[in-house]
Design a protein around this nucleic acid. Structure first.
Length: 197
DNA sequence: GGCCCGATACTCT
DNA sequence: GAGTATCGGGCCC
C-alpha cells in the first residue's frame, strides 16, 4: 500500500480534489490506526476565489496554504468546529482541498466513541475532524514526510459514473461566479455515514 | 425526511 | 464588532 507523494498534491487543485476521491485517509495514534475512504471534497483556489480564505491575502491563518503542497491546513470555525484541508499547487500559490466526508474503514469504534450517539459518523467536515481528533496542533503537518502520522494511501479510484460534481457547500453570500463553481466532488455510496445524495 | 435556530471563539475589518 | 468552508436538537411533517 503506497502513500500519495508530494507530486500528487503539487498539481491543479481541481485535479487533486477529483483524484482524492476513493483514496484512503489514514491517521496513526500510537498502535492504533484510523482509516477511511475519502467520499467528498471541495476545492478552494487562490486569492481570486472569494470563497477561499486566501482572498484576504497572506495572514497568520492562511500562511500554510501559501506553503509547499502535501501539508494539512487545519482551521477553526463557527466557534466550535475544526476543518481539515490538503494544501495543493506550487509553493507560493494558496490553494487547498477541504475534506468534507469519508467512509470509516478502520477504527470505527473509536470514531463512534468520539462522535457520541450520532448515526452520522463522518458525513460532514466537522464530523470527520471530530472522529479523527484533528485540531490546531495538526495545522501545517506534512502528509508526505517519512514519519508522517497522517497521510493518504493509494486505493482503487471510483468509477467515473459514481462521481458527482456540484457547487460548494455553505458559502453563504459569496458572490458569483464563485458561489456556483462546480468545485465539490463526491462519490455516491449506499451506507449511512456517507454524504447525502 | 427537512427547516430553523442557537452555540461559540477565532479572524479580519 | 461582524462574519463565519457547521452541528445537533427541536419541531413538523
Amino acid at each position: 500500500m503506497s502513500r500519495l507523494p508530494r507530486s500528487f498534491f503539487a498539481r491543479p487543485t481541481l485535479t487533486v480534489a477529483r483524484e482524492l476521491l476513493g483514496q484512503r485517509f489514514v491517521k496513526l495514534e500510537g498502535r492504533r490506526r484510523l482509516a477511511a475512504i475519502i467520499t467528498e471534497v471541495e476545492a478552494y483556489i487562490g486569492e481570486s476565489d472569494l470563497a477561499c480564505h486566501a482572498r484576504a491575502g497572506r495572514t497568520a491563518r492562511t500562511e500554510v496554504m501559501y506553503g509547499p503542497p502535501g501539508h494539512l491546513y487545519v482551521y477553526f470555525t463557527y466557534g466550535k468546529h475544526w476543518m481539515l484541508n490538503f494544501v495543493t499547487e506550487r509553493e507560493g500559490f494558496p490553494a487547498a482541498v477541504l475534506l468534507r466526508a469519508v467512509a470509516a474503514e478502520e477504527g470505527a469504534g473509536l470514531m463512534r466513541r468520539r462522535r457520541g450517539r450520532s448515526d452520522h459518523l463522518t458525513d460532514g467536515p466537522a464530523k470527520v475532524t471530530q472522529a479523527f481528533a484533528f485540531d490546531k496542533r495538526w495545522n501545517g503537518a506534512d502528509l508526505c514526510a517519512r514519519d508522517a502520522e497522517a497521510f493518504v494511501e493509494t486505493n482503487l479510484p471510483p468509477a467515473d459514473e459514481a462521481v458527482k460534481v456540484g457547487p460548494r457547500v455553505g458559502l453563504g453570500n459569496t458572490p458569483e461566479p464563485w458561489l456556483n463553481r462546480l468545485w465539490n466532488f463526491s462519490v455516491q455510496t449506499t451506507r449511512s455515514d456517507h454524504p447525502k445524495v
